[in-house]
Design a protein around this nucleic acid. Structure first.
Length: 908
RNA sequence: GGGCUGGUAGUUCAGCGGUAGUAAUGCUCGCUUCGCAAGCGAGAGGUCGCGGGUUCAAAUCCCGCCCAGUCCA
């Protein structure tokens, strides 16, 4: 059963699914839309169609007396819901840290969804509640700024409650409130409101919903999440969820009736940008144009088609109209994109070419190219972000805290854009310069687009090509539909452990346990051992597992499968089922791994404090000999930055702060410590183990940790590298491993010093001198060779054997001098004596190298390349070259004599 | 995350199995010129991104990695 069938099913029983008390009380009548056959509820007796087929009649004549700007609309909403018993919750980050399957928060309900196993569960921090949730969506980018209502980020007013818990309400209560919000809150009269029947399907849950419209504009959608399971096999949820989402942008717009919703939702930003760019606001034409565009988008398909349609309707020349609206569209688009970036960067995201960061780079570059195209390059995106933050901090005060970070990242990315732009121009310029020689093929154009981001439109604009080939876009599309990603792999589970109770985890109850007694519960394949309790830490959270012994059997690997810890031993034949055993954990290893783990947390916060709030843990790994921490950061680290991070980390270690581990209810932990606890990823359970380094770092973590930071002793960052765009890897050593590392470095330095015949203090000086000397020696050899080649060439000519053919042959085997020498001498020799054939066999490494030169006269009879090939063949190799110069070689050193004889033979 | 392109003199690049390039530009020196712009001549400048492999021989071919760029999700 699909969405359509489900809708039909729900609508076939409206009393059960859709009719709420309000409809009866107020006399809303149910009608079937004359066009799309959807059902809707209205007080308007004349209404024939559902609002989907209606123009935006509020533009220019809003249905309210109140005029609410964006922040004003939220204040009104907040007041209404707070007055009606709702807790007002602060927005969640737009970067969705609490779900692995989403980069960004795409709807208000996402705030309260947690994935446990493969099921989505709802967790509300209050009941009922309302939240002004900023949401990011990148699926309609091309309409943003043009349609009047599309955004890459928007505020979804989320009204949510658990219907079956204390304080909860169900459909009647929800629609009463939403009706109240529209009428009392915004001041819309009841007969303006239409409710449309719909269904909503999400991850493993679904229900019916009522969308509400005013003058053609959808203001919100109240979803009644009632069933869980699939459409074909479902049951009523024990905790039904109300999920009403309404666009704050639309609340404001309906009261303002501006040509576009952008005009009323960006505070003073639009006006300031109009002013800064010197753009006129032709209120009348713009109102008519955008009014038509925003309400007709769905009927016309694309914006382009729509534009010509509207132009015709307005009886304005299409080009003239386009020219008039272009700067406004540009301002709207840029304002939108920069607002999205301000939120995303504030919440710790970075533009990059991987993951969600790519979307951010795309919109930033889009904004920059728009500014450039309209010759507004003087306007800095960082300044626009500032304006947004000034306005929005009335509603989202946390934005102001990140103002500097936002500016830093935007400026950095803008300068990167300028760089790549320059390259583009350069490439286009050089193409233009040589275009006469060859026409660019479609393949060339695709390569330029794919690898350099140079669009054919840009090349057209630059006059490099005369037209964009029609096959360009189809070929491009083919190319992309062809590539498809492969699936990931999972560890194969160990079977035969079905009825075993969860293992008691001694490494959590007391991390100091290194020896313990336990009972064997199962042995599988003579190597996998399960105990009733264990102090062995299993592989997880980037922490390597413990090793040790169970009754003498060596433990090589420890893993966790669901609630059971499985020890892999080399030979489990002594460990019968039910047997009591004694086990020892390798304490030295555990201590070092533990120190590296706590050090990871220390360095993570140290990096964030040093570099900026965008720093998050991307991944981490810790073992006995070292630890590795990947952080999100925009650039490679300088030596100074690394040292600063190291200094701070060590000062935290020296101050010996307590590390407190406590388990919290997940919601409580999120509330108390914010989402920064999810550095290592999302916690998969309802209880989270919080590792709290006093006044420094708080993370949800399942690993083992020291009790006080002082136990780490010392941390030394040994390497920092940029492993991909937006991710920097730090490798470090801690505790004893750090001491070992320092000693190793010292030994190395000492032996370098010794080799140089210097002391450790003067090793650099000595090294520089040695390098200079070797450089000078190389130069000397080169210049001497030039001098020597002349005389050696002459003497080679003089020594050469006279052959019957009139040619002269010089052949030699040389173990001392190298090929450079013989090339130089040979070249000279044939210059001096044109009848000469110069053959040198040179010992080189494992084999022999063959150099053959033939003088101008000699060339008439013999070919150097052929001789080289022949001689090399005798040496078990091969060779080649031209008539003048040939080279080759072989590996049979024992056949030098034969080769020399053959050489003489060949030269005859 | 996937694809593509590139990495050779200070810079921009050519070379794409056989001695690193009469390359452009910049640099140094000299000459021409009242001076400038410019011209002429000479010279210096290179671990061909790193590591493996194939080969007698790798900047060049193959594999892996790194860096930069770029497009797509």
């Amino acid at each position: 059963m699909g969405k359509k069938e489900l809708a039909a099913l729900f609508s076939s029983n409206p009393d059960r699914y859709y009719k709420v008390q309000l409809f009866d009380k107020m006399g809303f009548a149910r009608r079937k839309c004359g066009r799309c056959e959807k059902f809707f509820w209205t007080l308007d007796g004349d209404r024939q169609f559902c609002p989907d087929h209606e123009n935006y009649s509020f533009i220019g004549r809003p249905p309210t007396k109140k005029k609410l700007d964006y922040v004003g609309a939220w204040k009104e909403t907040e007041k209404f819901f707070h007055g009606n018993g709702h807790s007002v919750i602060g927005r969640y980050p737009v970067v969705c840290r609490w779900r692995d399957d989403l980069y960004f928060t795409i709807a208000s309900i996402v705030d309260f969804q947690r994935v446990v196993g493969n099921k989505v569960v709802f967790e509300l921090p209050a009941n009922p509640l309302v939240v002004p949730q900023m949401c990011l969506r990148f699926n309609d980018i091309e309409n943003v700024g043009l349609s009047g209502r599309h955004y890459t980020s928007f505020c979804m007013v989320g009204q949510a409650c658990n219907a079956d818990a204390e304080g909860g309400y169900w459909k009647d209560g929800c629609i009463d409130l939403d009706y109240g919000m529209l009428t009392e809150g915004l001041g819309i009269s009841p007969e303006e409101i239409t409710f449309v029947e719909d269904v909503w399907m999400g991850a493993g849950a679904f229900g019916c919903s009522l969308e509400f419209f005013v003058r053609g504009l959808e203001l919100g959608n109240a979803v009644f999440t009632e069933f869980e399971g699939t459409e074909d096999d479902y049951r009523v949820m024990p905790n039904k969820i109300i999920d009403m989402g309404a666009g704050l942008e639309r609340f404001s717009w309906i009261t303002m009736g501006t040509p576009t919703s952008y005009d009323c939702c960006f505070g003073p930003v639009i006006d300031k940008m109009l002013q800064a760019t010197g753009t006129d606001r032709n209120q009348d034409i713009l109102s008519r144009y955008f009014g038509a565009v925003s309400s007709k988008l769905e009927q016309a398909g694309t914006i382009r088609e729509l534009k010509s349609l509207v132009a015709k309707e307005m009886r304005i020349d299409e080009d003239k109209l386009a020219k008039m609206v272009a700067p406004h569209e540009a301002i709207y688009t840029v304002a939108d994109h920069v607002r999205t970036l301000a939120f995303a960067i504030s919440d710790g995201a970075l533009p990059s070419n991987v993951g969600g960061g790519y979307n951010l780079r795309v919109i930033l570059r889009r904004a920059l190219s728009i500014l450039e195209r309209l010759d507004w390059s003087g306007i800095r995106v960082a300044d626009i972000a500032d304006m947004h933050i000034d306005y929005l901090s009335q509603m989202y005060p946390e934005l102001a805290d990140h103002r500097e970070n936002v500016r830093t990242i935007l400026d950095l990315e803008a300068s990167r854009y300028v760089g790549s732009r320059e390259r583009m121009n350069l490439t286009a310029g050089s193409l233009k310069a040589r275009k006469k020689q060859t026409e660019l093929t479609v393949e060339d154009l695709i390569r330029l687009y794919e690898s350099d981001g140079i669009t054919p439109d840009y090349l057209l604009e630059q006059g490099v090509i005369q037209a964009v080939p029609s096959s360009f876009y189809t070929k491009l599309a083919d190319l992309h539909s062809a590539s498809k990603a492969a699936g990931g792999q999972t560890n194969k589970p160990i079977h035969g452990l079905d009825d075993i109770p969860p293992t008691e985890l001694l490494y959590y109850s007391d991390e100091s346990i290194r020896e313990f007694e336990a009972t064997v519960l199962a042995v599988v394949e003579n190597k996998f051992v399960v105990l009733d309790r264990t102090a062995f830490y299993p592989r997880g959270g980037g922490q390597e597992p413990d090793t040790g012994e169970i009754d003498g059997a060596k433990v090589a690997e420890v893993v966790k499968q669901a609630d059971i810890v499985i020890h892999r031993v080399d030979d489990a034949s002594g460990l019968a089922n039910g047997r009591k055993i004694r086990a020892q954990v390798n304490g030295r290893r555990r201590d070092l791994v533990t120190k590296h783990h706590t050090a990871t947390h220390v360095i993570n916060s140290s990096s964030r404090n040093t570099l900026g709030s965008w720093v998050w843990q991307n991944s981490a790994f810790k073992e006995e000999s070292y630890g590795r921490l990947d952080i999100t950061h925009h650039s490679a680290l300088s030596k100074e930055e690394v040292q600063k991070i190291e200094h701070r980390a060590n000062s935290v270690i020296r101050s010996n702060r307590p590390v407190v581990i406590k388990t919290y209810d997940r919601g409580e932990a999120e509330k108390k410590f914010t989402f920064r606890i999810y550095q290592g990823g999302v916690a998969p359970s309802n209880n989270v183990r919080i590792v709290n380094i006093d006044d420094w770092d708080v993370e949800a973590c399942g690993g083992t940790h020291v009790r006080n930071t002082g136990e780490i002793g010392l941390v030394k960052i040994i390497k920092s590298e940029r492993i991909q765009d937006g991710v920097v890897r730090l490798e470090f050593v801690a505790g004893e491993a750090a001491v070992n590392y320092v000693q190793q470095q010292e030994n190395q330095l000492a032996s370098i010093a010794q080799s140089l015949g210097s002391s450790r203090e003067k090793v650099l000086e000595s090294f520089d001198r040695a390098m200079d000397e070797s450089e000078a020696a190389k130069k000397k050899v080169k210049s001497m060779l030039r001098v020597v080649a002349e005389s050696m060439g002459k003497s080679a000519g003089a020594q050469a054997k006279k052959l019957a053919s009139g040619l002269r042959l010089y052949s030699t085997y040389d173990e001392e001098l190298d090929d450079d020498y013989h090339i130089a001498v040979g070249e000279k020799a044939i210059e001096i004596e044109p009848a000469l054939v110069y053959i040198a066999l040179i010992s080189k490494g494992q084999g022999i190298r063959v150099i053959v030169f033939a003088g101008e006269q000699a060339r008439k009879k013999v070919k150097a390349g052929a001789i080289a090939k022949q001689v090399s063949g005798a040496l078990g190799g091969s060779g080649g070259g031209d008539d003048r110069f040939g080279q080759g070689g072989g590996k049979s050193k024992d056949r030098i004599k034969e080769a020399l004889l053959l050489a003489e033979e060949a030269a005859r």
